[in-house]
């Protein structure tokens, strides 16, 4: 194809997206669109399955049977969401194994919030309430993103995720109205998860490299700062309601803007965690690699067995 022809195709492509038409796997797409989508969707998928680990840490120790089954079902959903998203990514011509390889070798990123440890039961509440809350704000707009398989996966994810945040908030609420010890546990978890949750919505607009292109392709509908503001505005009253205090001395309602003003985010910490210096980066990755490597003989066995059965069937047919 000549450069001019490509340019022409690109123009038609961009117009299609501007008209809110969907792009499907076999449609022509610019290479950059494909690459950007592989990167974003796989990053999203990786976040789901790495995100299973901090919460999985408390399944065996959940304080009641009701909490145990709810947490199990939630973490299982995350495996499901990872699976939907890897499948969407595979329609772009890359295999799940290749994507795993990118994760395991550190080439691909995942949400860095999962590099923080879950050290008390209240952390499970905080993750559901704050981390899933921030995730939902990120994810809902993606239900109408331009790439069909991604949008469809997100519809399913959002539908299933609706119980996750409630589950977390209910845990926090129960603790907040429990004994002083429980309330302290809840407040401590909020103190530790609040700032990382704000960071989860991405670097500030001034620092964000992908925003403009992503807006055009509807991978993003609002900027990181807008999403962060939305998250803060919706979460502060929820904290008030259960009597917990947001750990930000500068947090204040601003009558003029109709939003909360908030304090400075420690972006140094954010970038350090992204670069691999979070408290659990190493643990998370080695848990993933270990599960994958220890599962190899199992996956091989299933393939060998399937082949033997197929061969037997063929022999019978002859």
């Amino acid at each position: 194809m000549s450069e001019k022809e490509i340019k022409n195709l690109e123009e038609i492509f961009e117009q299609k997206i501007a008209r809110d038409e969907k792009i499907e796997p076999k449609d022509w797409m610019p290479e950059k669109y494909r690459q950007t989508h592989i990167r974003q969707i796989s990053q999203h998928a990786h976040s789901e399955i790495v995100g299973m680990l901090p919460e999985g840490n408390w399944i065996t120790r959940a304080p009641s049977l009701r909490r145990k089954v709810a947490l199990l079902a939630k973490v299982q959903d995350e495996a499901g969401h990872g699976l939907y998203l890897y499948s969407a990514c595979e329609t772009l011509g890359i295999s799940r194994e290749e994507l795993y390889d990118q994760l395991h070798t550190g080439k691909a990123k995942y949400s860095s919030i999962f590099n923080y440890p879950t050290i008390t039961w209240a952390d499970i509440g905080a993750i559901g309430w704050l981390v899933d809350g921030a995730a939902i704000i990120n994810q809902v707009p993606l239900c109408s993103t331009s790439y069909g398989p991604y949008a469809r996966a997100m519809v399913r994810v959002c539908k299933e995720e609706s119980f996750h945040q409630r589950q977390g908030y209910e845990i926090m609420m129960t603790l907040a109205k429990g004994t002083p010890e429980q309330k302290e546990m809840a407040q401590d978890a909020l103190n530790r998860w609040w700032w990382p949750s704000l960071m989860m919505l991405g670097p500030t607009d001034a620092e964000s490299v992908h925003t403009e292109q992503s807006m055009k392709w509807k991978l993003k509908r609002k900027t990181n700062d807008e999403l962060r503001q939305q998250f803060i505005d919706q979460t502060v009253p929820q904290a008030d309601l259960i009597g917990l205090t947001i750990p930000d001395a500068d947090l204040k309602w601003n009558e003029e803007t109709g939003h909360y003003d908030f304090g400075e985010i420690d972006w140094d910490e954010f970038w350090q965690v992204v670069k691999g210096h979070g408290p659990c980066n190493h643990e998370r990755m080695s848990a993933r690699v270990k599960a994958w490597e220890k599962g190899e003989w199992v996956r091989d066995a299933a393939m060998a067995y399937a082949k033997k059965k197929e061969d037997k069937k063929l022999k019978k047919a002859i």
Binding site: L83, Y84, S87, E90, R96, R156, A302, Y305, A306, K309
Partner: peptide
């Protein structure tokens, strides 16, 4: 509904049920 990985047809059905 979507896709998944499986070694054979029986497993694909079971996985589909679970997923």
């Amino acid at each position: 509904f979507g896709s998944l990985h499986a070694a054979d047809a029986e497993m694909a059905l079971e996985n589909a049920r679970d997923v």
